[in-house]
């Protein structure tokens, strides 16, 4: 029950993109097509879960005993960057087709603040290892939900007669704002 609660609160109530406004860059950048946004969600889910587990362990077993918690951000960034590189190298060899499909999005994840955000939030909330893993997975799901929904809306937007100055990014930002407003309706449920 506790884990289900963590997932629901991560997906809907404090959605990483639409309530906490982290990871806006890929949210706007790779939401042109549903297909690519699904690929991005897959890659982000993988990296978020792995990064949270590793950073959690580094934080608890290295940073806290040494009393250097203040170096959290830079340490986490270092680990995430190395991790993304690792995933890229392995994926290129193991599954070239997947590598082709994700191509540009993989290195982009390094600079995705949602990954860092989830890792930092997990240690801030004093969760244990299993809880943080579930929390990371829930947040990744929330990211996917926001991204794919938004991509679906943007595909429909292309078919409408939008006034010329509003086409492209402006209308996308307005829609993103409306989506965020809609997700505010979930606030306070849990």
């Amino acid at each position: 029950m506790e884990y289900i609660l963590i997932i629901i609160s991560a997906v809907f109530i404090s959605n990483i993109v639409l309530a906490q406004f982290l990871g806006i860059c890929p949210f706007i950048g790779v939401s042109n097509k549903v297909e690519t946004s699904i690929g991005m969600t897959g890659a982000v889910t993988f990296v978020i879960v792995l990064a949270t587990v590793i950073t959690y362990m580094v934080y608890t077993f290295v940073l806290v005993p040494l009393g250097i918690e203040f170096a959290r951000t830079i340490t986490f960034i270092l680990i995430i960057a190395a991790l993304v590189q690792l995933v890229e190298i392995i994926l290129k060899k193991v599954s070239p087709s997947m590598y082709q499909a994700l191509g540009i999005f993989l290195p982009l994840i390094t600079t995705n603040c949602a990954v860092l955000g989830v890792a930092v939030l997990a240690v801030q909330k004093d969760m244990n290892l299993v809880q943080s893993t579930v929390f990371a997975f829930g947040n990744a799901l929330g990211f996917g939900l926001a991204l794919i929904t938004f991509a679906g809306i943007r595909e429909q937007l292309d078919l409408l007669n939008i006034p010329k100055p509003m086409r492209g990014a402006p209308i996308a930002l307005i829609v993103a704002g409306m989506l965020a407003l809609a997700f505010m309706g979930f606030a306070g449920i849990v």
């Binding site: 580094v58 290295v62 040494l66 250097i68 170096a71 830079i74 340490t75 270092l78 680990i79 190395a82």
Partner: peptide, 10 residues
């Protein structure tokens, strides 16, 4: 400690 930890991780 900070320098050592970061260098080690890097």
């Amino acid at each position: 400690f900070t320098i050592i930890t970061l260098s080690t991780i890097g």
